[in-house]
């Protein structure tokens, strides 16, 4: 009965957020009734402390080691104290505007995010539709799947020259690179999700005579939602990887170009601050998609 499922390393079943949610639950200690409210608040504080103190501690130790290791003059990389001294304004004020090319990192990140939003948004829509097509039809799978499997291994930047040639403009090219990078895991995971729709649901749809449109929105998408969100989560991560690289080459005011610019003017401290921004934003994006996924697929995984 079951169509053989293509095993790809992109296919995982969203274990991340659930696992971490479990971990958080374990930390929340059971409250005893007799101790009242004070005890409860104390327990909650303990719970928060248990998740925040260890990473802060490790961070502190790393900064210390870094500071000691690179403190002597002539070190190849700036020590944290030097970074703070040189790039304090970048860290403290993300949204300043001093001129067309001299703006805060927060604003730069926002420009990059806008590109990601467009590119990734397009990839999500087109990816889910194509994935549905591929998952639904044996012939589409046979014809398209090998092509997808080859194309998805092409590194994001390899697409850039072609897209520059095609669009003759930096901004659409960067967006296209995002799109083409993010779309493969979305297609592949959606297709697997569609192939895994239980025959029972299809039978229900058939008995009710749902049309293609109703079947897509009422059965396919909700049923494949956990897979789709796995794809979206991988996709948003890849988008963020690709945007920085693409912006380095296309210029503009994005965070990627900022790094390139800082490198050309040997402002290593600025680069390190920018890396920090990129990491934090990437992390937030991943968590955002995961959270939306959890919200949407609440009912789907259990039956």
């Amino acid at each position: 009965m079951a169509v053989p499922v293509q095993k790809t390393d992109n296919v995982t079943s969203l274990p991340g957020p659930k696992a971490s949610a479990k971990a958080a639950e374990i930390v929340a200690l059971p409250t005893r009734k007799s101790d009242g409210k004070g005890k409860k608040i104390l327990d909650q504080l303990k719970g928060i402390a248990a998740t925040t103190v260890p990473p802060l501690l490790v961070l502190g130790v790393l900064l210390l080691v870094w500071q000691i290791g690179f403190a002597q003059p002539g070190a190849s990389l700036p020590a944290p104290s030097v970074i703070w001294a040189e790039a304090k304004d970048l860290i403290l004020d993300p949204f300043f505007v001093m001129g067309p090319q001299d703006i805060g990192l927060g604003l730069r990140v926002l420009t990059s995010l806008e590109r990601v939003a467009i590119g990734f948004g397009l990839a999500a829509v087109v990816g889910v539709l194509l994935g549905a097509l591929v998952g639904q039809s044996v012939w589409a799978t046979r014809g398209l799947d090998p092509i997808f499997q080859v194309l998805r291994t092409v590194p994001p930047l390899a697409w850039l020259p072609i897209s520059l040639a095609a669009f003759r403009d930096a901004n659409p090219s960067a967006i296209f690179v995002i799109f083409i990078t993010a779309i493969w895991p979305i297609i592949i995971n959606t297709a697997v999700g569609i192939r895994n729709i239980p025959q029972d649901y299809r039978n229900v749809a058939q008995v009710l005579r749902l049309n293609t449109f109703e079947f897509f929105f009422k059965i396919m998408v909700p049923s494949a939602a956990p897979y789709i969100f796995t794809g979206l989560r991988i996709g948003i991560g890849l988008s963020w990887l690709a945007i920085v690289a693409a912006e380095m080459l296309t210029g503009g005011v994005g965070i990627g170009f900022f790094i390139w610019d800082a490198w050309n003017s040997s402002k290593l401290s600025d680069i390190i601050v920018a890396l920090l921004y990129i990491g934090v934003v990437g992390f937030a994006l991943d968590r955002l998609v995961a959270a939306i996924g959890n919200l949407v697929t609440r009912g789907t995984s259990a039956s």
């Binding site: 229900v204 058939q206 008995v207 005579r209 059965i219 049923s223 789907t300 039956s303």
Partner: peptide
């Protein structure tokens, strides 16, 4: 020769849609 709601089926394993 095609399914339809005038021949409703109660399936062996209930087949309720879990997200509804």
């Amino acid at each position: 020769n095609a399914p339809g709601p005038e021949r409703a089926v109660v399936f062996q394993n209930h087949s309720l849609l879990p997200w509804l």
